[in-house]
Amino acid sequence: MTIEVLDVCKSYDGKSVLKNVNMNISSDAVIAVAGARGSGKTTLIRILLGLEKPDSGQVNLLGDYKYAWINAGTVFQEDRLCPGYTAVENVAMVNAKLSGRVARQSLEKLLPPGAADKPVEELTPAQRRMVCIVRACIIPSDVRFMDEPFFGMTEEEKERSIRYIRETIAHTPLVLTCLPEEVPSFCRVYPLD
């Protein structure tokens, strides 16, 4: 499967956010969309996910693809975790076939011992980002979109998260967004002005 982004433009209240964005996300792509705050990184991810419509241009799914939408494991810019529920519950809820035991095992690769069974509001912001990363990686998906997944993490936490992502989703395309100075070394850079 290839996701083809063709001349996508988007503006809000007359202010242009994306201008003629072209991109090919092939099955082996690992792309970092790098740009400053307000450069349209989140808007691009939202358009790819079908949450926003571009003003002009197209997002096409090429090749033999069984869904009408992009089946994507996603880390949103905000955590979007259900408050009052544990990290395990938040991860296991995304797939009926996923057991709490499997979710806990994955979470324990990133979180300190015992944290997986705490309500998410008791975790640190970095730990909550890790829960989001596990939630995006644990379900079978055709592509992963991660909007500033390492925001608020220390270097050590970021390294651990990158290692987890690379081990877990080695053969699926990945598009992540980040600031220009924070591009992970394993990604091809797509600069967004």
Partner: peptide, 24 residues
């Protein structure tokens, strides 16, 4: 609304959406 978008993107099963998002 952001949790609803998350449920939509992940295609969360209806029972899980009711339990974790709707009922609370």
């Amino acid at each position: 609304g952001k949790l609803l978008e998350m449920a939509f993107v992940f295609r969360i099963p209806a029972s899980a959406r009711m339990q974790y998002i709707d009922l609370p």
